[in-house]
């Protein structure tokens, strides 16, 4: 298990970050090239003011009609995504690793706060799981891919919470947590999670089309 831990925080971490960063950069560049090649008659209408205005509306909870009419999803989605970013970036344990191995350090969230936020993510994953099972219109469109992605995110945060609370063998749980997290990073550019990369552009594009071509708003 020690050997696996060393592998996970060493070479695999490098690999995961490299695949995540290079993979994301590649996907964004490739998509840009494809858009310029095949979607020129749409790229021509891109308008940053409209895109930014629409993005501002959509990152405001209950700002858009879609959010207002799905209040449960709205609350959970916002809580989920905010925590999903805050915890990995500002958790003491993560910073300590960067600090110990690379000498990089930045301010951390208090542990109890980070713990609570992680539990929020796990709870949000459970809510999404429940929706996929129990809400017919979501069940209808759920495929294996969706279960896997949800499981990956859920497992990463669940093992993190368990490791923090020292439930189960800590070395095992922490190693599992690191491996899940790395798998999630690698999955971002290559799965449904790529909405993290492309979501801003698809939103921005449709906002441009609605704003500058159609003179209407898209929220």
């Amino acid at each position: 298990m020690h050997a696996l831990f060393n592998l996970a925080v060493g070479p695999l971490a490098w690999l995961a970050f490299a695949l995540f960063i290079l993979g994301s950069a590649y996907r964004l560049m490739a998509m840009r090239a494809l858009a310029l090649k095949k979607d020129a008659s749409f790229v021509a209408y891109i308008s940053w003011p409209h895109a930014l205005k629409s993005l501002a509306h959509w990152i405001t909870p209950f700002g858009a009609l879609g959010w207002r009419e799905n209040p449960g999803v709205t609350v959970v989605t916002f809580a989920f995504h905010i925590c999903l970013f805050l915890v990995p970036l500002f958790l003491m344990g993560h910073i300590a690793l960067f600090d110990a191995f690379h000498g990089w350090s930045w301010p951390a969230l208090p542990d109890t706060v980070a713990d609570t936020l992680s539990i929020v993510v796990v709870a949000a994953c459970l809510y999404f799981l429940w929706r996929r099972i129990a809400v017919p219109e979501v069940r209808f469109i759920t495929r294996t891919h969706d279960w896997l992605v949800l499981a990956l995110v859920g497992a990463t945060f669940l093992t993190g919470v368990l490791a923090y609370h020292r439930i189960g063998d800590n070395l095992f749980m922490t190693t599992l947590h690191i491996l899940c997290g790395e798998a999630m990073l690698v999955a971002i550019p290559f799965t449904r999670l790529s909405h993290m990369l492309f979501g801003f552009f698809s939103r921005g594009y449709i906002a441009s089309e609605f704003g500058s071509v159609r003179h209407a708003k898209d929220w």
Partner: peptide, 17 residues
Amino acid sequence: CMGCHMDKQKGPVTCGD
């Protein structure tokens, strides 16, 4: 601590340990 434990593959290396 961690550095040595990781080298020797013995002793605690995780936060919680």
